[in-house]
């Protein structure tokens, strides 16, 4: 860190953070957490690879049978596997577009509002709700007999027949709405933090030149909040892969598999049919995509912090 290099530790004769003496202190601080995390993440990861080549025995003590590439072959020829990627992509793209559009608009207005603090408190509320509870609550609102949102949609004439969750045409978008309800505020708050850094003098200059609010936004504000927007988009994509509680509560994948996103298909294979070996193969492909996304996210984070320079690393 640049901050650390500036400290005059060596001059005072105390251990600087990068000396061998300092490392003796740092290792015992670091290692317990690293070992615990390794046990909880690398060990299961190795297991996952092992499982993907086996038909996993379910009875206590039952051995797993080596099946070679069977699970993998099955996955690549499984049409539902690929269809579920499609559902996940459609779901993620649509909810992301809505959340980013609405969230950016909200952020701009919040930034100008006298009641910013109060509004942020309100916006935080949906994010505190357990996703499965949010799913159940919305299932109640969508219910075709006594759901208020169902009643509202019928009353304004937007829904002619069928129920919201019972139709393959509407079920996925109904879950998108829940995601938008719960997580648009997160996007808004990330973008808001970016807006706070927009250079005001440039905006003023843009206004003086006669550019309207919309043009000023695209010319001056947008470049400044690009980084925040990118983080928001990536985090939302990651969470769409991570969390399937809304789907479990609202539809369980139906009707006619129209809401069966890939993580939900994985859940079903592993814990409804107990095809744990096959589940492991699917899980590994999901993890691979997550790691790629994770790399993008981390690169974004690091743009806000200096990379440790080569010189620093050589000091060790």
């Amino acid at each position: 860190m640049a901050v650390d290099t500036a400290t005059p530790g060596a001059v005072l004769g105390t251990p600087r953070p990068n000396t061998p003496r300092a490392r003796r202190y740092l290792a015992p601080l670091l290692l317990p957490a690293v070992i615990l995390l390794a046990l909880l993440s690398i060990y299961p990861f190795v297991w996952l690879i092992y499982m993907s080549f086996h038909a996993v025995g379910l009875a206590p003590g039952a051995p797993s049978e080596f099946v070679g590439l069977d699970n993998w072959q099955r996955m690549f020829t499984d049409s539902q596997y690929w269809a579920s990627w499609g559902v996940l992509a459609r779901y993620s793209v649509v909810s992301m577009v809505l959340e980013v559009g609405l969230g950016t608009l909200l952020a701009i207005l919040l930034n100008r509002s006298k009641h910013e603090k109060l509004l942020i408190t309100v916006l935080l509320m949906p994010m505190m709700m357990a996703p499965v509870v949010a799913g159940l609550l919305w299932q109640y609102l969508y219910n075709g007999t006594f759901g208020w949102y169902f009643w509202g949609l019928r009353s304004v004439g937007l829904l002619d027949e069928g129920t919201i969750l019972g139709s393959a045409d509407t079920a996925l978008w109904a879950i998108v709405a829940v995601d938008v309800w719960e997580w648009t505020p997160l996007v808004a708050l990330i973008v808001l933090s970016g807006l706070k850094l927009v250079p005001q003098d440039q905006l003023e200059a843009s206004w003086m030149d006669g550019a309207g609010p919309v043009r000023s936004f695209f010319q001056v504000a947008l470049p400044s909040i690009k980084g925040s927007l990118m983080i928001a988009i990536l985090l939302r994509f990651m969470d769409n892969i991570r969390i399937i509680d809304h789907f479990i509560a609202l539809t369980g994948g139906g009707p006619a598999n129209s809401t069966k996103v890939l993580p939900l298909y994985l859940y079903e294979q592993s814990f409804s049919f107990f095809e744990l070996g096959y589940g492991a193969s699917i899980a590994l492909t999901l993890l691979l995509v997550t790691i790629l996304f994770g790399k993008l996210v981390v690169n974004r984070f690091e743009e806000r912090e200096p990379r440790p320079s080569k010189k620093d690393e050589e000091l060790v």
Binding site: V34, L37, L40, S41, Y43, P44, F45, W47, L48, M51, V56, M238, I241, R242, I243, I244, P263, L266, Y267, S270, F271, L276, G279, A280, A283, L284, L286, L287, T290, I291, F293, G294, K295, V297, V298, F301
Partner: peptide, 24 residues
Amino acid sequence: DLYFWIISTRMAPVVAVTVPLYAI
């Protein structure tokens, strides 16, 4: 690399982690 490993653990899909943990 340590950084990346730590943060990517946090970002792993919950179901994908559940599969091996269940077996273990």
